[in-house]
């Protein structure tokens, strides 16, 4: 039996490996030239500060399994269902067939240009959380004028929980990412003032709350409860922000040398296309809808098509990998069933 997996991010890789180990043939399709997905852009992972690239390497290493065929730089152009089999036409001309289809198309980060009032792409010292990861990778933090920033602000919920961008959902990870990044930043900039502007701190995972406490006590990160309304830039290229500190109920104005936007997660364009090609329903938050939120978290409204990872909702890496294993199990059950 063979399974076609679309997307070789962490979810796709893990599911491929689990299925391959169980003796299924796997066709793993990835549009980029290398597997790993969004993980490629990360430096360290919360909560244990594991190297992202180390995890990535481990996941990719397992793709060398003899049951896995990896198709890099490929995209499905057509998906047909014929006599209980899926036929996936790739843009390089190959035609793959399989009894089950697993969509692991993942998420994409919110395009910060859409929140123009925060000045991304307009003001020099406004960056996104991904760009900050890049800074960390290169171990170089400086402002556009080449100085060490004295005051850095993290802005939570950019493109999440925001009616104006039509994204109502919480992206779940940006709070803890901000805490992690603030700590990493403190290690490089012992003297700087570091602030996080949040609406709520969503520290859902094990160890997260502890990290948050440590950030305040040990790393002197200031947490301000209030949403940024707008930003402007002064002559010195600093970012002037206006917000309201909702805990003391006062408007607040401040200049930042560097402003980091904690961009949220949306369904990736690739996942959206797949949903359109296969008729998978979308949930109101824009992600793909699972058949049942408790019992069928990897199944969809289309028989034989499964989901793994953050194409069904924002997930951290722990949950993504767990979800991928769960998808592998679900698919095996399904394959047994159609065997009879």
């Amino acid at each position: 039996m063979s399974v076609i997996i679309i997307g070789a991010g962490p979810a796709g890789c893990e599911a491929a490996y689990q299925l391959a180990q169980a003796g299924e043939k796997v066709e793993l399709i990835e549009q980029e030239a290398q597997p790993g997905g969004n993980l490629n852009n990360w430096y360290q992972l919360f909560p244990d500060r594991k190297s992202a690239q180390e995890l990535n390497r481990q996941l990719i290493l397992r793709l060398e399994h003899p049951n896995i065929r990896l198709h890099l730089g490929c995209m499905p152009t057509k998906i047909d269902r014929r006599e209980g089999r899926f036929e996936v036409q790739l843009n390089d001309g190959a035609l793959l067939t399989g009894q089950a289809l697993l969509i692991a198309g993942g998420f994409q980060l919110f395009n910060a240009h859409r929140k123009e009032e925060y000045g991304y792409g307009i003001y020099e010292n406004v960056i996104t959380s991904v760009e900050l990861e890049n800074f960390f990778t290169n171990q170089r933090i400086q402002t556009s004028t080449g100085q060490l920033p004295k005051r850095v602000g993290f802005i939570h919920c950019v493109g999440s929980r925001d009616e104006k961008t039509c994204n109502f959902h919480c992206s779940k990870l940006c709070c803890v990412t901000a805490v992690k990044q603030a700590i990493e930043l403190r290690e490089i900039l012992p003297e700087a003032e570091i602030l996080c502007f949040y609406m709520d701190m969503r520290m859902f995972g094990p160890g997260y709350e502890e990290m948050y406490r440590e950030a305040q006590e040990k790393y002197r990160i200031k947490f301000v409860r209030g949403r940024l309304s707008e930003a402007s830039e002064n002559k010195a290229k600093q970012v002037l922000i206006k917000a309201e500190d909702t805990l003391i109920g006062k408007p607040l104005k401040m200049t930042l040398d560097l402003m980091v936007l904690m961009v949220g997660m949306e369904l990736s364009a690739g996942s959206r296309q797949l949903a359109e090609m296969t008729g998978i329903e979308k949930a109101t938050n824009g992600f793909l809808r699972v058949k049942d939120p408790h019992f069928a978290t990897n199944e969809t409204n289309q028989k034989g098509i499964f989901l793994a990872g953050s194409c069904s909702s924002p997930m951290n890496l722990t949950d993504t990998l767990t979800d991928a294993r769960s998808a592998a199990l679900t698919i095996r059950e399904y394959l047994k069933h159609i065997d009879l």
Partner: peptide, 9 residues
């Protein structure tokens, strides 16, 4: 207008 700093710029 303040929501589109690009225009002000």
């Amino acid at each position: 207008g303040h929501l589109t700093p690009g225009v002000i710029r």
